[in-house]
Design a protein around this nucleic acid. Sequence first.
DNA 1: TTATTTCCGGAGACGCCCTCCACTTAGTCT
DNA 2: AGACTAAGTGGAGGGCGTCTCCGGAAATAA
Lengths: 212, 212
Amino acid sequence: MEGVSGNKYGGILRFSRDDPARVSETVDSPSRKPRADAERNRLRLLDTAKAVFGEKGPSASLEEIAREAGVGIGTLYRHYPTRDALIEAVYRNETGQLAAAATQLSAAHPPVEALRLWLLLFIDYLGTKYGMAAVFGSVTGGTAALYAACNSGTPEAIALLTDRAVASGEIRLDMDPIDLLRAIAGVASAGPGWQETARRLVDILIAGMRTS
Amino acid sequence: MEGVSGNKYGGILRFSRDDPARVSETVDSPSRKPRADAERNRLRLLDTAKAVFGEKGPSASLEEIAREAGVGIGTLYRHYPTRDALIEAVYRNETGQLAAAATQLSAAHPPVEALRLWLLLFIDYLGTKYGMAAVFGSVTGGTAALYAACNSGTPEAIALLTDRAVASGEIRLDMDPIDLLRAIAGVASAGPGWQETARRLVDILIAGMRTS
DNA sequence: TTATTTCCGGAGACGCCCTCCACTTAGTCT
DNA sequence: AGACTAAGTGGAGGGCGTCTCCGGAAATAA
């Protein structure tokens, strides 16, 4: 369908086997139509995975996900050959809206304010999509590749905002802007009420980056 | 049923190395002297665990640790009934020096500078004792209790520094100071060169907290 | 030395990861 | 419609982990 089929266009997620149907789809495809049940299973898996990851974090049992989705474990692995592939598929869409918001905010607000608002939005995302924080901040088991894939668009989004703010001369930033997000995600490991803290941290960061 | 030998003295409060108190402390237990081999095994386990955790992170195989220490898996579990207990024992001493440094720095430097230096020291610690960062920042599998135990003394240490800096009127801080550490630990998940970033982050944080 | 208590250590039950492949089924062809 | 065939299914099985349990070994006390 819609969002999920983003995989078939998104370059990073690769299917384990060569998939002529998909590959040649851009060209004219003489190949047979993909089976309906396969797609159905894939969606069920994706939904279930989203639920389970959201509940138990990104290290939840894949067998449980397969069981709960009503498919065999083999089917899960067919669609998502690695845990990372599944996590990536689950969280891929999330960041899209964040990226979009960056452009919007950038157009509607002065540079620094746009950055600030976007960081607050980022906090909201970390909150609603629980598990994202874990994915974002996890060292343990968190591949760099996975990280990059899961947050595709995010680096560009924040780069857009910081570049603009830096260009305006209002702030100075001698680091990869993504590290701002890492810092924020860091406090997300705290208990309830962390969002308050995170928001305060945003203020501190902004203030600290200001060229005075 | 049994008090696991190490934990019987109050688990959390026990020091891993020499414990002279133990000999004379047999007030209400006229029982026999603890066996020498038990203590020996415990120390071997501790050393091995420190090495292995340092190399593979806090999710290393406990079986491997036992194997490498030359004891049975049962022995490991006897001394450290849970993975968390072992991690705690390994990292308990680490923070002691950090805590001590806080007092020292506090006495030798102006408030804000002391705080800054201590945060830099914290970064060094995260670097040298690899795995600490993982323990510190991990949401996945990281119990809150474990977190607290592993970093005993640290909250007090940074509280001392921030309280002093706040009292001097030079900075403002509307959050638990430990969250500063969480933020710093957050960037430790970045690749090589993270220490540079972390140091820059410290500057930003300090600047951001300043009451101008 | 003998008795007693503590401690060792690995077998075993169970869960999870991932692979492999005999079988089923959806789309296609006649 | 029915047969054909590749795509897709699902679960058994091997490897590795965690954690428990308890018979037997070893250290201490008498």
